[in-house]
Nucleic acid binder design. Structure first.
Length: 852
RNA sequence: GCCCGAGUGGCGGAAUGGUAGACGCAGGGGAUUCAAAAUCCCCCGCUGGUAACAGCGUGUGGGUUCGAGUCCCACCUUGGGCACCA
């Protein structure tokens, strides 16, 4: 008897696949193609369980589709620009480029043993100059088509380090290194005109039928289409009127003040010649730029002294600067209706401004105190002196009536607005794709010539001081103006890493092309048939990619059909783990110190740094994240049990879309099962080939049931369900007494059905049983419908909705016959006690419910 | 604060509005063994009962339905996103 030794058979089969070239994607017009893609990783240097789960899911799909006869493209690359490389350079020295490429090597080395069906020949990293050079070409094309422009935008500014901070680098409103309170500052930056596509990106969501509904909903809300009224408040002092936008114009009677953003032109004007205002605005600009920071900050206001005239009543309303009004949305100015908006109400209570009820609930006319009355727009309410003469009406109706009235009387117009803002792509950082423009004293902002691309990042930079090293690079900045040839300065900002990940899927179709894409290849391989990644990318990455695909199509880099690049999307849950925070020590750079799970041990209910008495604070499970160090290394499992065990394990326990809390137990169970399957194969191999058996028919039926169930499981991403079926099928084979011939067929089918999940073991069983060629090349089995028909079905009998008995009836038995049988059943007779049933429900093949 | 999810045995989880707990883990019992490992077989939601069986049970409270883990309303807890983490 032989033994299952993963460490021997896995490399053997990986070599066999490589020699057969089975994973090399080849354009074959005679075959239907299938493009499966998992979101590519950031090269942190550590493969973690989340990666293994993600790639294994993609691999199951990929191998399944190969068996179904598709020409499959299944590539892998690295999202390799970004902050961690610069942070590492600052923390431990070295160069971002060296650090990144070393990490990529490490990760490839960790991924290869998993036996993924990847076409490694297509691999690239976004920090490869061949890639970002093409990205610069795309930028220039977008610029030419008017899809990129410059405007001012607000950034987090660290006043001590004199540098721009990412949101992640702001902790409690302070810079993570300096600890100084962060300020919001304006900077001129590059923007993609994604807002031109708001409506298009919104309506096209309807066509994405194979995307999760929740992702479409999140994108819909993010784009945020709203219809409202735009109108102006005349100023009593006769200056330029203040234009506001509101989605609740029906509550205009409840206006108690006009609010403007701290970044509104009027605010800036006041600030310029009034130091008091400047000081107040500086206070309001403290804290980070995130919507969360702004919305949860304490409400601050400043009465400008300006008065605005109510367009209907002529009443004079004060104009306040309020810190919760965003300049980016609407017109940067609002009218406040405190009675029906909690933020406005909080503000009015703080600054003692009037609160005017404009409508009440139909059954309750209590005036608003400290809780705003905000009913659903579809709910009918009772209006107080409504200017359009409404008495009882829904908010929806009232809004429409008000807009019509305003348009008729000429004081306002109905306007559709979107929440979606243009995408700022400038980053004041080194490790990113340089923006290929030049600043010339006489010509202004000049795009670089395409023949000068790529604009390569200089290697000789240092990270010993904060800020962007490109800014202080002695020679890289200096260049000749592409237009007039005079000495000029290169743009030192680099691109947001979301740009890198917004078109890599297209580049995979022709990774060596001299242009961003090769149309013939893109025509064949696009779209991505199945995209798989984390739910955390539901909005930004996916929305940006959808925009990019449209922009690339306009510039002739993608075919028309590819403007929605991902036909189907699956969002896997995250692998989560507890976080271990050291409350006594900090990192050498003075930041919070987090420990890896393997550095931690649990003793008598507490958690310590392994081998010490240093106690740690445990924060409940959160997504595994490199900044929190709560990552589990899968390599250990692969080393001790083999890749198939790791693959089987990450697929088996949790539904793929759900988060999974990592626990070490369970991996052993997976290994045990694979051993059992291997032993089963071995046992069948040693059977007497001519021996007769019992129950061949039954086993055959089970074979086809397994084919049906596993196929369905794989196609519907029910990998855990498919695996449960495979457990059951294995048990069935193990217990059967069928002939060698029947058992051999069963184990061969089992190998095929397991092949997408545990490909090495499957090949070994296939070979062991004398299967022809590789199992990866064998066509996927088809369930024989005629063998799946059941003749009898068990139906439960409920009495008053509770199961009390069951009967077995032929599947095709008439409803009336079933009723008769049910009513004759002992339990039913007893329950009826001689009476007639109140109601009798019979759902053939499902259930019988007797109501007494 | 705003948007989107999730909550079922000791644990991971299964269940087109139709038998709640498939499958696996842990646990208990047994077989094999000199003994152990490995393997195999059986039991396993909670409470009461020797048992048959009865009652309870899918975060909490309501509702719709012959029937609700599943649909509706409110709440609690928890995860993700909030535009410079990727």
């Amino acid at each position: 008897m032989s033994r299952y030794t993963a460490s021997e058979l896995e490399p053997k089969w990986q070599k066999a696949w490589e020699e057969a070239g089975v994973f090399t994607a080849t354009r074959d017009d005679s075959k239907e193609k299938y493009y499966v893609l998992e979101m590519f990783p950031y090269p942190s240097g550590k493969l973690h369980m989340g990666h293994v789960r993600n790639y294994t899911m993609g691999d199951v799909i990929s191998r399944y589709k190969m068996s179904c006869g598709f020409s499959v493209l299944h590539p892998m690359g690295f999202d390799a620009f970004g902050m961690p490389a610069e942070n590492a350079a600052m923390a431990i020295g070295g160069h971002p480029k060296t650090w990144t490429y070393e990490n990529i090597d490490t990760m490839v080395e960790q991924m290869k043993p998993l036996g993924l069906s990847l076409d490694w020949s297509r691999m690239f990293a976004t920090c490869d100059v061949e890639y970002y050079g093409q990205q610069q070409a795309l930028f220039l094309d977008f610029l030419e088509k008017g899809l990129v422009y410059r405007k001012n935008a607000i950034v987090n500014w660290d006043p001590v380090d004199m540098t721009v901070l990412a949101n992640e680098q702001v902790e409690n409103g302070c810079g993570w290194r300096s600890g100084a309170p962060v300020e919001r500052r304006e900077l001129t930056q590059w923007f993609f005109k994604i807002s031109d596509y708001s409506d298009e990106l919104l309506t096209a969501l309807d066509g994405l039928e194979n995307w999760p509904a929740k992702v479409r909903l999140m994108q819909e809300n993010w784009i945020g289409k709203s219809r409202g009224l735009q109108f102006s408040f005349e100023r009593v002092d006769g200056e330029e009127p203040i234009t506001v936008y509101t989605t609740r114009p029906d509550t205009l009677n409840g206006a108690s003040f006009v609010g403007i953003s701290p970044d509104h032109p009027i605010s800036k004007e006041l600030e310029a010649d009034n130091p008091e205002v400047a000081a107040i605005l500086a206070e309001m600009r403290k804290g980070g730029t995130t919507e969360e920071a702004i919305e949860t900050a304490e409400k601050l206001g400043y009465d400008t002294g300006i008065k605005a005239k109510h367009p209907l009543t002529g009443a004079e309303l004060p104009v306040w600067i309020a810190n919760f009004i965003l300049m980016d949305y609407g017109t940067g100015a609002i009218f406040a209706c405190p009675a029906h908006d909690q933020r406005d109400l909080d503000f009015c209570r703080k600054y003692d401004l009037p609160v005017i009820d404009t409508f009440f609930a139909l059954d309750n006319e209590t005036p608003v105190e400290n809780e705003a009355f905000v009913p659903m727009k579809s709910e009918k309410v009772k209006w107080v002196n409504h200017f359009a003469g409404l008495d009882e009406a829904t908010g929806e109706d009232a809004i429409n009536v008000t807009i019509d009235l305003a348009e008729k009387d000429g004081w306002g117009e109905g306007v559709t607005k979107f929440r979606l803002r243009d995408w700022g792509l400038s980053r004041q950082r080194y490790w990113g794709c340089p923006i290929p423009v030049v600043h010339c004293d006489s010509c202004g902002v000049v795009p670089e010539k395409k023949e000068n691309l790529p604009i390569e990042l200089p290697f000789d930079v240092s990270f010993d001081q904060p800020g962007n090293p490109l800014d202080r690079h002695p020679t890289w900045r200096d260049c000749a103006c592409p237009s007039c040839g005079a000495p000029a300065k290169r743009e030192t900002d680099t691109m947001d890493t979301f740009v890198d990940s917004s078109w890599y899927f297209a580049r995979f179709t022709a990774p060596d092309a001299e242009t961003p894409t090769d149309m013939a290849e893109a025509e064949y391989w696009m779209n991505v048939d199945q995209y798989i990644g984390g739910i955390e990318h539901a909005i930004l990455h996916l929305l940006y990619s959808r925009f990019f695909a449209r922009a690339m199509q306009i510039c002739g880099h993608l075919p028309d059909k590819a403007i929605e690049p991902f036909d189907a999307l699956f969002t896997q849950g995250m692998v989560t783990h507890e976080i271990y925070e050291n409350t006594t020590r900090k990192t050498p750079e003075g930041r919070t110190l987090y420990h890896y799970p393997e550095e931690v041990e649990k003793r008598d209910g507490n958690t310590y740094v392994k081998g010490t008495d240093e106690q740690l604070k445990v924060t409940p499970s959160a997504k595994m994240s490199k900044s929190k160090n709560n990552v589990v290394d899968p390599i250990e499992i692969i080393n001790s049990y083999g890749a198939d065990t790791a693959r089987w394990f990450v697929l088996s326990d949790s539904p793929p879309e759900r988060d999974v809390e990592w626990t070490a137990s369970g991996a052993e169970a997976a290994a045990k099962h694979l051993n059992r399957v291997w032993n089963l194969c071995d046992r069948i191999g040693e059977m007497d080939k001519d021996a007769a058996g019992q129950g061949d028919e039954d086993l055959l039926r089970e074979v086809h049931k397994a084919i049906r169930d596993v196929t369905l499981g794989v196609e519907s991403f029910g990998f855990n369900a498919a695996i449960a079926k495979l457990y059951g099928f294995t048990n069935t084979i193990q217990k059967c007494k069928a002939s060698y011939k029947a058992q051999r067929e069963a184990i061969m089918t089992l190998a095929q059905l397991m092949a997408p999940m545990t490909p090495h073991l499957a090949e070994d069983i296939w070979a062991h049983q004398g299967g022809e060629g590789l199992v990866i090349n064998a066509p996927w089995p088809k369930a024989d419908e005629s063998l799946l028909v059941e003749s009898a079905v068990t139906m439960p009998i409920q009495i008053n909705g509770k199961r009390r008995a069951e009967i077995s009836v032929p599947v095709d038995m008439a409803k009336e016959e079933i009723e008769k049988l049910a009513l004759a059943h002992d339990a039913v007779v007893k329950a009826l006690d001689g009476g007639a049933p109140k109601k009798l429900i019979v759902v053939p093949g499902r259930i019988i419910n007797v109501v007494v």
